[in-house]
Design a protein around this nucleic acid. Structure first.
Lengths: 129, 129
DNA sequence: TTTGTTGCTTGCAAAATGCAAGTGACGGTA
DNA sequence: TACCGTCACTTGCATTTTGCAAGCAACAAA
């Protein structure tokens, strides 16, 4: 399906620089965004799913981050019910390609941080583009 | 050299969970910390070096982030002059092992973000433990 | 004595975070 | 018909963080 203008990702109005690392951080650089992406890799799709994660994300933060991830084209929002409208979220291909970032963080964290436990494995996520 | 208690890294008083990804983000999850780490990979060591980066990090943020990176054992602060005391910063082994995280972000950013340019290559950083 | 350098610190306004409660639109039950 | 439960959010507000701009300290150089 041809992407419409509406489907094109939107980014912060201004990246700090043209450096890819800095630009990635302009989108993903806070404490919660990649936790939400992690949960999508764990096949969590609905609010109730995200809220079961041990970090106890506040609902206003979850809403805000999902909205931004959708705007960045990393996440796809689909309705599974029309009345009342109820949404579920999926990684897009671009979102799924964040796997190496999460894997690198996971590996570093396991090696260097006290008290972490070996996490459950990511199964291939369901992708919707 | 045997690490003293003073050299042991200190972490946030409380991680949100035992998940390594979440815990890494408790330390590194903001817009500036990994930019500072990136600059260390680019062999920038002193304030004047960091301040030449295109993102124009505010000096209070730079000071704050270097302090936290040192506390986490990712960065080593050395004095290159005693009077007045003047510091330079180096990656430790644990800091150098963040390379895969940066590389994964870089690759994703180059592929998916508009307007990024191919960055200068990381040379092997000087490590001080 | 004055100026320049470097690594920070400080004051303050704006923005973000996060707690807790609330909202809306349904379906289910009494 | 009235009430309750569910779920995906929104809202109000206090606290924390961010970031601008100026300032400080301890030297060396002119």
């Amino acid at each position: 399906m041809k992407k419409t203008q509406a489907d094109a990702p939107t980014f912060p109005s201004e990246f700090r620089s043209s450096c890819p690392v800095a630009s990635v951080l302009d989108i993903l650089g806070d404490k919660w965004t990649l936790v939400v992406v992690r949960d999508l890799f764990l096949n969590k799709h609905r609010y109730g799913d995200f809220l079961t994660s041990p970090e106890a994300i506040p609902t206003n933060i979850l809403a805000d981050r999902l909205k931004k991830l959708e705007a960045a084209g990393i996440v796809k929002r689909d309705l599974y019910q029309d009345n009342p409208p109820r949404a579920e979220y999926f990684l897009t291909t671009r979102g799924a390609d964040l796997a190496p970032v999460l894997r690198a963080m996971l590996k570093w964290g396991v090696q260097y941080l006290p008290g972490v436990s070996i996490p459950q494995k990511f199964t291939p996520p369901e992708i919707r583009d």
